[in-house]
Amino acid sequence: MAENRLDIRYVAHLARLALTPDEETKLSAQLGNILGYIEKLKQPDVAGVEPTAHAVPLINVTRPDAVGVSLSQEEALRNAPASASGLFIVPKIVE
């Protein structure tokens, strides 16, 4: 198992999560503790064991390619923090 050197700022950046310096300190300590506990997964022999992604006895579930009922544009935008002209408004991405 990997060494548990968790670079909190790097991981927070990957998760797009702003943390205060206080949160960084606290989380680093707590996660170090949790990762220490997780080390016990080194013990069982997993050679030749297939991973389980989920326990449901189904694969490749598809539905008929047919038009069904969906939300109207107005309903889909109702919860948006900012919208106009039938679109979600976000900060400028391309100059």
Partner: peptide, 13 residues
């Protein structure tokens, strides 16, 4: 591999 994949294998066990 060290965490997620290994956990999925232990899940099988």
């Amino acid at each position: 591999d060290a965490y997620y994949l290994r956990a999925q294998k232990v899940r099988t066990l």
